[in-house]
Design a protein around this nucleic acid. Structure first.
Length: 562
RNA sequence: GCGCCUGUAGCUCAGCUGGAUAGAGCAACGGACUUCUAAUCCGUAGGUCGCACGUUCGAGUCGUGCCAGGCGCGCCA
């Protein structure tokens, strides 16, 4: 639609130039947008203002010339054109311009909104990637919802998307996990122990120790401490990782690949990356350690990759991991991190540039922290003491759909208050029901129409939409407004993909839901007039489809009944 | 001290690459169910967009400097 408007403007400008009404045939980089206020038309352009300096004419004068060069009567999608404000040219479209979208939605179905702006480029979205040392909490939940939705939106926009989880199954935290479990096991067997502060404090460690004791207590007893700790570490990490996987499935998140940090060491890729960077001269030796000169790539200071005790830092495997991502053929790599990790962006950027990739190929989505509340009061959360509400508990209490929708309701650049009581409420305060209710309501209407024999099934409805015979009966302002909103969905998806902002979809869905609920309360879909009934059924079933498409991108279900 | 994020209605937040009269929900007040689901709708009220300069036809949006809050600045992960 916008490109049609643009063609009209360009043609008018050409015409005006050829007839000597404009001194220059220069075409500025104009905007064509849907104005905020309906009385500013369906589309508006700033052509006249941005041309003013080149044309050396007043903006309103230019606008007059352009408008005079457009024959509204000859263009059937146009109703009228107005000049307003400092020189905006406002286009008012005829209702007939909008009806084809109903047909398009019925034709495209679940693919309405899909685009190919991604040109099938390979994109990897890595998210959650929590250490397998404890259960997922609410912060991981927000990251999971964001990463999953971003992946869905990019895939819907024509990118070839892979969702990946990076398992930190190597290094100190895993040894600490093993030690924590082993100490608890030892405690179970009646030994006096000193449980260190830097060990994992949660009760789940004791549960795992109990499980190991009953399953293989005898075996462990025969091992040396070092071996026993190793066994505990392996057992606990496997067990916790499995629970993480289960919890994510329960949250509706499925990964295409689970990537092990340890595998980078086993395959020699960490050492390869270090060697490569040494050859390039970006890794050097100092004070018995190996340093990566990240400062020359814009970081605050250089960073250690191999400590003077010979052990690599986590940064060494991160370098290898990100190098490997691109070696696997991804054009673009997106990491979803908690905001508390923002200090690492520069050094990963350095690693990416040193690997010969462009900075633009890598983006980090920083997800701000979540405050968990219950009835307005903060819920005490401390990983250190092991006292925290897990993601599973939240999903069990409020449901997957409510949790995901709330996580995606705000920009991830803002902190989020997540109130368990609000998330459980089935009121307008809880936006998920507000939107899902649209889908359920329309399902009810279509079912009733079907029972009444007005329209027997979805297929016939699609047929009616395609014929467009009676769609012109949809002439109420609310109906045209709904169609315009539906027509804008593809653009919303594309903007969401370009900005990597899933909450655009949320905002869109709530405004579409609001428009529908208002319409529903004013007009009956099923009336005595069969033609009108059929055209309204076409309209509301389009709304239903778009609501479902949007919810699907966010990983939220669209129920037939509530 | 340095870096990142945030600051918009009483509260929680939208505001897309700079556009016209800054929006929504909640809370408050007044209305609408013998009706396709009231998990809904309609109406009223609510603002120096943290502050100050600057960029330009035009700034909530961009730049600089302050102020306030959150987070981060390890040969930890």
């Amino acid at each position: 639609m916008k490109s049609l408007i643009k063609d009209i403007i360009i043609n008018a400008a050409d015409f005006a130039f050829k007839n000597g009404l404009l001194p220059s045939d220069f075409k500025p980089d104009m905007d064509i947008e849907a104005p905020r206020h309906a009385n500013h038309g369906d589309f508006s352009t700033n052509f006249a203002m941005v041309s003013a300096s080149v044309q050396k004419m007043a903006p309103r004068k230019i606008a007059e010339v352009i408008v005079s060069a457009i024959d509204v009567k000859k263009i059937d999608i146009l109703e009228k054109i107005e000049i307003a404000g400092p020189g905006f040219i406002n286009f008012f479209l005829a209702p007939t311009a909008w009806y084809p979208f109903i047909k398009m939605i019925h034709d495209d179905g679940e693919n309405f909104g899909r685009s190919d702006i991604g040109s099938n480029k390979k994109v990897q979205v890595e998210f959650v990637s929590a250490n397998p040392t404890g259960p997922l909490h609410i912060g991981h939940g927000r990251g999971a919802a964001v990463g999953d939705a971003v992946g869905n939106i990019l895939a819907f926009s024509g990118f070839d998307v892979q969702k990946e989880y990076y398992i930190n199954d190597s290094g100190r935290q895993i040894r600490t996990l093993g030690l924590s479990v082993w100490l608890r096991l030892s405690q179970l067997l009646g030994n006096q122990i000193d449980f260190p502060d830097d060990c994992y404090q949660g009760d789940y460690i004791i549960d795992i120790a109990k499980e190991i004791n009953s399953k293989m207590g005898d075996l462990i007893a025969q091992k040396s401490e070092a071996e026993a700790v190793d066994i505990c570490a392996k057992y606990a990490a496997d067990k916790i990782l499995q629970e993480i996987k289960d919890d994510l499935v329960g949250f509706g998140v499925e990964f295409d690949r689970w990537f092990s940090e340890q595998s980078l060491y086993d395959s020699g890729k960490v050492q390869d990356a270090i060697n490569t960077f040494q050859d390039k001269g970006v890794i050097y030796q100092k004070d018995g350690a190996l340093w990566f000169s990240t400062e020359s790539f814009g970081d605050e200071k250089d960073r250690v990759v191999v400590r003077n005790n010979g052990l690599t830092t986590y940064f060494a495997s991160d370098i290898a991991y990100h190098k490997d991502k691109f070696d696997r053929g991804f054009d673009r790599v997106i990491d979803v991190w908690g905001a508390d990790h923002h200090g690492y962006i520069n050094r990963i950027n350095a690693a990416i540039e040193a690997s010969g990739r462009k900075k633009e190929q890598f983006s980090v989505i920083l997800v701000q922290l979540v405050n968990l509340l219950r009835g307005g009061q903060p819920v005490a959360m401390s990983t250190r003491s092991g006292e925290f509400v897990t993601l599973k508990e939240i999903v069990d209490e409020v449901g997957k759909d409510a949790a995901r929708f709330i996580f995606l309701s705000r920009s991830y650049e803002s902190g989020l208050d997540f109130d368990l009581e609000v998330a459980k409420q089935q009121t307008a305060e809880n936006p998920v029901y507000y939107v899902q209710y649209v889908h359920a309501r329309i399902s009810g209407i279509v079912a009733k129409a079907s029972e009444a024999g007005i329209i027997s099934d979805q297929a016939k409805l699609s047929l009616a939409a395609k014929s467009q015979n009676s769609l012109e009966l949809l002439k109420e302002a609310e109906e045209l407004n709904l169609i315009k909103l539906l027509a804008s969905f593809p653009e919303v998806v594309q903007k969401s993909a370009a900005a990597l902002h899933p909450h655009f979809i949320f905002t869109y869905l709530t405004s579409l839901a609001s428009a529908f609920h208002g319409y529903y309360n004013h007009y009956k879909v099923i009336t005595e007039d069969e033609d009108l009934t059929i055209s309204r059924l076409c309209l509301v079933s389009s709304v239903k489809q778009v609501i479902k498409n949007g919810l699907t991108l966010l990983g939220v279900s669209a129920p037939e009944r509530m």
